[in-house]
Amino acid sequence: MTTLLNVDNVSKTFAMGGLLSRKTTAAVQNASFSLAAETPEIFTIIGESGSGKTTLARMILGLETPTTGSITFRGKPVGGATKVERMAFMAAVQPVFQNPFEAFNPLKQIDRYLESTARTFLGLKDRTAVERAMDEALQTVGLSLAEVKGRYPHEMSGGQLQRAAIARALIPNPPLLIADEPVSMVDASLRMSIVNLLKALRDDFGVSVIYITHDLATAYYISNRLIIMQRGRIVEMGDARTVLENPEHPYSRLLKASVLSTEDAGDGKLATNPDMVALATRLATAPGGQLVSRPDGRLVRVYEPV
């Protein structure tokens, strides 16, 4: 069994503020997990805002270097050392970003990004071949080249932009896709079509996806494994269904309790049990703790009694 991606004890600390009041934020603390090459999977990262999900994704993409620890893709450090290696890495690991409204340069037409991707990573020269590759990718996500060509970002809605961004990432046929909240800005129906698309990419094309989301329901629906993060720490990790059906860590439980349900539509229930919130908040800053494994295969962070 060969590993596709290996994240080994990775931490990232940011220094913030001026010269006098220097504060450091531990955006990611001691994260470890790995993806196998033979079994493509959807690996989900869930967590509150600012818990370090994006930072972790950026490190995997080689856009940020870990403060400690290492990340390897197919045995080599991510990002690539030489230009050739870097291009090969970028063709193999493609990102989908969080904010569709920021995904493309507002002053430029959208198709230029698709075209550039097709030309550089597929090595296509011929105009019709490039356009065919672009159109194919756009068709996969429910758009077409005719709709996108010559359009500026402000002429498309958020959902259209996000689909165009995914289409762009799909052009080089990457084995690993890093999707940072790809569905948080699109409606339920479209969300399902994108999520189904990610699922199809895994099942039919063998693409592994690191799927970052706030949406527990879609995570449950498509992912194989997941990690739940709180303030830079992994608090629970395991099989997606096992964890979400019966979360153990207080923060995981709070997450699940906060999911808005529709079965009591119209009753206006918005209150969360304040004790749950208090407990989860306390653990966010609780010192240390470590991940221990449970009989059902999951890892849960437990803390020294205080």
Binding site: G47, E48, S49, Q98, N99, E181, S184, M185, H214, D215, L216, L254, L255, S258, V259, L260, L270, T272, V277
Partner: peptide, 10 residues
């Protein structure tokens, strides 16, 4: 509340 996590969203 789009793009907020479920806890903050609520």
């Amino acid at each position: 509340t789009t793009a907020l996590d479920v806890v903050v969203q609520k």
